[in-house]
Design a protein around this nucleic acid. Structure first.
Lengths: 224, 224
DNA sequence: TAGTGGTCTAGACCACAGA
DNA sequence: CTGTGGTCTAGACCACTAG
């Protein structure tokens, strides 16, 4: 049993795809569509909201709704906790803590209490999969100073603690530095996929992390 | 003037962030929250939908709504048309068509009419920025056989033509092949950022493309 | 300023899964 | 079974902006 708003959304989608409503075409108003489909205005509205969020139509007050020209490809990207991602593929997950130290008053990140620096390695089938270099603000998360990261990665420890946050994620490629190459068992300069993330809570910096993967082992795929 | 549903969403967000509602906590029901905030149920519902889509709470019929444990970092990623991205940074956009040929009946992609292969280069300030290697199905898009890609890139030609589609996007890092390295003015094996996209309309393959960038020139950043 | 989308209400009924 | 979320309705008023 298809929901009514979904049926209406799909019918409008069909009209757009089939060229009945070409790019730039002005759609009927909400009351007109409600009358055509025999539903309440709110139901039509919900269908149009879906198209609008997808970037397929552009809505402006007084000007109506028009079929939009695609300006960009937007898609939802999901980056799982590294252990889950490895285990989901049926591989064996391994973890090693490489370094853990506290430094005072770093200018670039962290406040007066200093920050905790943790470096660890995630393995898939005993092969290095991700080098995690993390910095945690001791001002915002003082309890991290006493956390034991020898068994549980800071990644997992943090997500279990932090509920909602502002996150900035950057994806890029790079050549492995000597430091990274050694830990990932690569040649210096070998291509790596780097994922950097900075996390804030109410505008306050909590943690930042750089996750480096051998290029051959890592990719991200999204489907609209 | 803050919308009512946004104010309610933010207040619930605050309760989650401040620990009033820890992970696993069961939220009040919609009618209860509606009474507390003095609004209609639909308004509470809209606020909760926002939290739910963000993955912050998990809703199940009869079981109510609970604060979810974060399993992954999800964010919306937007990949602009390459020319727009370059011009948005204030750089000068350049374009060169490198190759254009039609091949018959490729097994991996395209139907009996064969496919159009287009290779072109996008430059920023006269420096190679992206190598676009594209294949277009002549069964689905026969008009592409007569399109002139010497001035306009297939990227832009296609988005102006295709309204709505199913898209699969893959992001990965790689070392430049000899072919790619030469066209991007890199050394073979140099790290590149690769973006691959396959596009379907009603389940029918339309086009696939591989976009290769020098690692030092390309990155993707998302915020929440 | 008139008409469009944006928000909200107070109800109703339904579908689903937990107790 | 029963209570929760999920959908829908028929109305109202508001906010913005194109004409």
């Amino acid at each position: 049993m298809m929901k009514r708003f979904a049926a209406i959304r799909d019918e409008m989608l069909r009209r757009i795809n089939d060229g009945d409503w070409p790019v730039g075409h002005e759609l009927p108003t909400e009351p007109q569509l409600a009358a055509e489909f025999g539903v309440a205005r709110g139901t039509v509205r919900r269908a149009m909201d879906a198209l609008s969020e997808q970037g397929l139509v552009e809505r402006r007050k007084r000007a109506g709704t028009r079929v939009a020209a695609r300006q960009a490809h937007a898609s939802r990207m999901s980056i799982p906790i590294v252990r889950h991602g490895i285990e989901a593929r049926g591989d064996t997950y391994g973890y090693r803590l490489l370094d853990r130290r506290i430094s005072k008053a770093d200018t670039a990140f962290g406040g007066p209490a200093g920050m905790l620096h943790v470096e660890c390695l995630h393995l898939a089938n005993n092969v290095p999969f991700q080098l995690e270099e993390r910095q945690i603000s001791l001002d915002s998360l003082p309890e991290s100073a006493e956390a034991d990261f020898s068994q549980q990665s800071p990644n997992e420890w943090l997500v279990s603690l932090i509920p909602a946050t502002d996150v900035e994620t950057t994806l890029r490629a790079d050549g492995a530095s000597d430091h990274v190459a050694e830990r990932l068992a690569l040649s210096p300069g070998a291509p790596i996929f780097v994922l950097e993330r900075r996390t804030f809570l109410n505008g306050e910096a909590l943690t930042q992390v750089r996750m480096s993967h051998p290029a051959s082992l890592f990719s991200i795929t999204t489907r609209n």
